[in-house]
Structure formats: structure tokens, C-alpha cells
Design a protein around this nucleic acid. Structure first.
Length: 488
DNA sequence: CATAGCATGATGTCTCTA
DNA sequence: TAGAGACATCATGCTATG
């Protein structure tokens, strides 16, 4: 849901800020000693795992079990053994555990995956979303994006009704709902899906529900029958959403919907250049000018606000398109508003998926909200008329917390507990919350997309990237909630 | 120090065509 | 079937300004 920056309002609840001054100084230039190098790599991994909330013992055991493998495989292994311990809640067989570790050595599972790979490629006609920048090449399970990107079903669409049956141990409680960008680097969704109990992602482009595109993947264990959309349904075209732009919209701009709302908007210099290019050309403009203008308009989501005059959307217009109440983000600077809005849920889309909760929880829900952002999930629940008895919200950006707290105070009567950082939400604290509230009904959140998003020029390094790796905390926390609730 | 403004490609998928 | 082109993308880093 949110993009997390490391230079922004970092005030951790716990004093985990001294991690970097730890005992694992890596000597990158001097040491010719292979042994020392391996040891410091091992220390690095242990440090990262401890950082994620695992114990040092667990980290050590995992490295012993699996050898020199990627970080995520170690997390996988630890979690697998944890879950085995909770065998009364979830029966993961020894066979699966060994298979996972075996896989780490590039064993028979690799061959099996390759087989499945081929089958799926054939089944989906060769269309495959790319795969992970895999270091060992063993995780290239394809995760094709559907076309059209409409998920399991959508309101008003006549399509074959998809049914799915989840294994009993995955159906909850709690229900969980995870979100991230659909067009992630290769293999990312395959990995996310594997961690989240091999549940197939539901890919939805919000352009089928509103006037702006938003291609996202959602993994959840909610029922998919008897969903209902928020009413009134939002406008699905630009002119329906903003009729006044019709006046200046040139006939050769054929757009009927907007592209994905992002965290930045086009500069005034750029819109000026476009204006000058149009002013100095014929009417209608030459083919090449049209092409230039249209390219910039599509990239920057520009709209026509005057003769030869384009501009980016206002924050208020983005709030509207995304399903938020007017002025939801008001009070922040404009840059901060764009950043917050660019990173949030499309409320109608998420609400459609969550709508099944209404009849299941007539007395309200307890929610664990990770990466809350400006509260897209909570706004969706509220608009569905689902009461929130308690929300434990984890969000690191002060600006977002301010917005969310303001909305909560004005609209809600339940309990809100705010936590700054997923890293500080330890297993112990989770046990304590579960005991206090009698368990969570919904664990919801979209983990940072910074290192997955296509428009990141610098650090698009996948699920292991600095911010996007926080996905593993979503996974850790979800499992902690599951096992704590299983012991209730 | 906080904020705003600005410029900065790569990695994919899909479509069309030779 | 290969290749070229069209198209989309929850952003980061630098700089100026108070």
C-alpha cells in the first residue's frame, strides 16, 4: 500500500536503530581469506533474520539446515519449521519441509518446477509474466498476468464464474488480504504466492471499476462468491468523472481513461513545453506533434484544462478517483499528498473483495493493518458499513499516520492502536494483541513496492530490495497471528 | 532542515508485420 | 516465427529555496 522511504520520518518504537553499528563489519577489500568472507556473509544473514524478528538460534539452525542460500529461503525454512511445531493448527508434512530444503540445493524440486513451467507456458499460450532475477535459477515458476485483468470476478461483468477451494488450514481465521503491484520483476509473484500458502493471486486492473488504471495483485483467503460493489459505482471514464474537461479535449486525444496514479506529477516546465509546441503548430497539429503530446499526456496523466493547455490532476481529483472522501489528504503539502495518494489502494476495488465480510461479521471486525498508509483498507471497510471494533495499525510515515488518525477520529468509535514499524511488532506483542482482542478477523496490507515498481530507475531490485523485503515481515506477522490464534 | 520542482530509462507485455 | 514498434509503470536523486 505504501512506498516506504528510508529518509522519511524514521522514528522506531523500539530501539532497533543500532542494528547497523553491530558486530558484523564486512571487510570488502582486505580479506583474502575465504573463510572469513563466508563467516561475515553468514553473520550478515543472521543479522538480517534477527532484524526480521527471528531468534538468533532459529537463524543459525536454518543456515545449518539449508547451507549457503538466499535470505528468503532461510526465512522460508524457519517459518516451515515453526509451522510444523504448530502442527495442531496446520499440518505441513515433513516431506514438504525436506522438499523445501532440498530445493535449496537445487535438487529434484527444480526439475519438477521446470516441468510445471513448461506445462503452464503451454496452457497460457506462452504468455508469462516474467520471473525473478533468480540467482540460482531454481525459482522460475511462471506467473502469467491475465488479460483482461479482471480477477476472479467483477461487478457487472458476464464472465465464467470462477470457483476456488482453499485447503482447510488456509481458510482462516484469520482472513488475510495482501496487495502489491502486478507488474513486478520476474518471479516476484511466484515467490509471494509460495510464501502465502501457494494461493493464486487475484490480478485486477482497477480501470474495470473506475476511471483510472491500477494493475495490482491481491492474495487473500476470502470467499469470492456473493461479492457486492460499493454504491454508487464510480464513473469509469474521464468525461464521466470530470465533465468540464470535455470542453478543451482535442479530438485526436482518444483517451477515455487515465493511467496509473503515481507518486509524482509532471513538472510545470513540461506542460509549458507542450503548450508551446501546440501553439506553434497547425490545427490540428502535425502527426509528429500529436505523437509527442500524446506520449507526454499518457506518461504524466495530463488533462486538458484550456486551449493548448494541459495539467496534472489535483490531489482532490485523485482522492475522488481512488474512492476516498474529499479532502482526505488535505493538510499535507502538495508533494506529500501526491506521494501518499500514489501509494494507496483503489478503495472500490479492495471494498469489492472485502464486501463478503459484512454478513460474516455483523458485530464488526478486529483488524491488523500492516503498511496502513492513508488507510485505504479501513476506508473500504467503513464505506461497506463494516464496523471496526479495533484496528492495530502499523505505518512508519508520519504524514500518513496524521491523515489516518484524523480520519479515524472523525468517523470511527473503535479502538485504534498505532505502531510505527513492522520490525517492532514482535511475536510477543502479537500474542499479547491476540489475547487482548480475542484474535484478529482480518490481516490486511500491501507491502512496499519501491523495489518492484517499473518506474523506479535506481533500485528496482525485486523482493530482496531494501523496502520491498518488508514483505517477509507481512509473512512473519501473519504466521505469528495464525499460531497465536490456534492456541486460543 | 523541510519542502517543492525538476529530469532521469529499463523492463516488460502486447500487437502487428514481413 | 522473429523482430520491430507501441505502450505502461504504487519512483529516486539532485538542486534550489525558504
Amino acid at each position: 500500500m505504501q512506498a516506504l522511504e528510508d529518509d522519511d520520518d524514521l522514528d522506531f518504537e523500539n530501539s532497533d536503530g543500532d542494528d547497523d553499528t553491530g558486530d558484523t563489519e564486512t571487510d570488502s577489500n582486505g580479506s583474502s581469506d575465504e573463510f572469513l568472507r563466508e563467516m561475515s556473509e553468514k553473520d550478515e544473514k543472521i543479522k538480517s533474520l534477527v532484524d526480521m524478528g527471528f531468534s538468533e538460534d532459529e537463524a543459525n539452525m536454518a543456515i545449518t539446515r539449508c547451507g549457503d542460500v538466499d535470505l528468503w529461503e532461510l526465512v522460508d525454512s524457519i517459518s516451515a519449521s515453526r509451522i510444523t511445531k504448530d502442527s495442531h493448527s496446520r499440518n505441513l508434512s515433513d516431506h514438504q519441509i525436506t522438499d523445501r530444503c532440498f530445493d535449496s540445493f537445487g535438487g529434484r524440486k527444480k526439475a519438477r518446477l521446470m516441468e510445471e513451467s513448461k506445462k503452464k507456458r503451454n496452457r497460457y499460450g506462452g504468455r508469462a509474466q516474467g520471473n525473478q532475477p533468480s540467482l540460482d535459477g531454481s525459482h522460475d515458476e511462471p506467473m502469467p498476468l491475465p488479460n483482461p485483468m479482471v480477477g476472479f470476478n467483477l461487478p457487472g461483468y458476464l464472465q465464467p464464474s470462477v470457483t476456488r477451494i482453499l485447503p482447510k488450514q488456509d481458510t482462516g481465521p484469520p482472513f488475510f488480504y495482501y496487495e502489491n503491484v502486478a507488474q513486478a520483476p520476474k518471479g516476484v509473484w511466484a515467490t509471494i504466492s509460495r510464501f502465502l500458502y501457494d494461493i493464486q493471486p487475484e490480478f485486477v486492473d482497477s480501470k474495470h471499476l473506475c476511471a483510472t488504471a491500477r494493475k495490482r495483485g491481491y492474495i487473500h483467503n476470502l470467499p469470492i462468491e456473493n461479492r457486492s460493489p460499493l454504491l454508487p459505482m464510480p464513473p469509469k471514464t474521464i468525461f464521466e468523472a470530470f465533465p468540464h474537461y470535455k470542453k478543451w479535449w482535442p479530438s485526436w486525444d482518444l483517451r477515455t481513461q487515465l493511467n496509473c496514479l503515481r507518486t509524482n506529477v509532471a513538472s510545470a516546465k513540461l506542460t509549458e513545453r507542450i503548450g508551446r509546441a501546440l501553439a506553434s503548430s497547425d490545427s490540428p497539429p502535425a502527426r509528429s506533434v500529436q505523437k509527442y503530446v500524446m506520449n507526454e499526456c499518457r506518461k504524466g496523466n495530463l488533462v486538458w484544462i484550456g486551449k493548448n493547455k494541459v495539467a496534472p490532476l489535483e490531489p482532490e481529483e485523485m482522492e475522488y478517483l481512488l474512492g476516498f472522501p474529499k479532502d482526505h489528504t488535505r493538510g499535507l503539502g502538495i508533494t506529500e499528498r501526491y506521494k501518499s495518494l500514489g501509494n494507496t489502494f483503489q478503495v472500490d476495488t479492495v471494498a469489492y473483495h472485502l464486501s463478503v465480510l459484512k454478513v460474516m461479521f455483523p458485530n464488526g471486525v478486529n483488524v491488523l493493518s500492516l503498511f496502513t498508509g492513508i488507510g485505504g483498507g479501513e476506508v473500504a471497510l467503513h464505506r461497506l458499513g463494516i464496523h471496526m471494533k479495533a484496528v492495530v495499525s502499523v505505518e512508519i510515515r508520519k504524514a500518513n499516520k496524521r491523515i489516518f488518525r484524523g480520519w479515524w477520529d472523525q468517523t470511527q468509535t473503535g479502538t485504534l492502536i498505532e505502531i510505527d514499524d513492522v520490525k517492532s511488532l514482535t511475536d510477543d506483542r502479537i500474542v499479547s494483541f491476540v489475547s487482548r482482542f480475542g484474535g484478529f478477523d482480518l490481516v490486511i496490507g500491501g507491502s512496499p513496492c519501491n523495489n518492484l515498481a517499473g518506474c523506479n530507475r535506481y533500485n528496482r531490485d525485486g523482493l530482496e530490495g531494501e523496502q520491498s523485503a518488508l514483505f517477509y515481515h507481512y509473512f512473519r506477522i501473519l504466521n505469528a497471528v495464525k499460531s497465536a490464534m490456534a492456541r486460543m
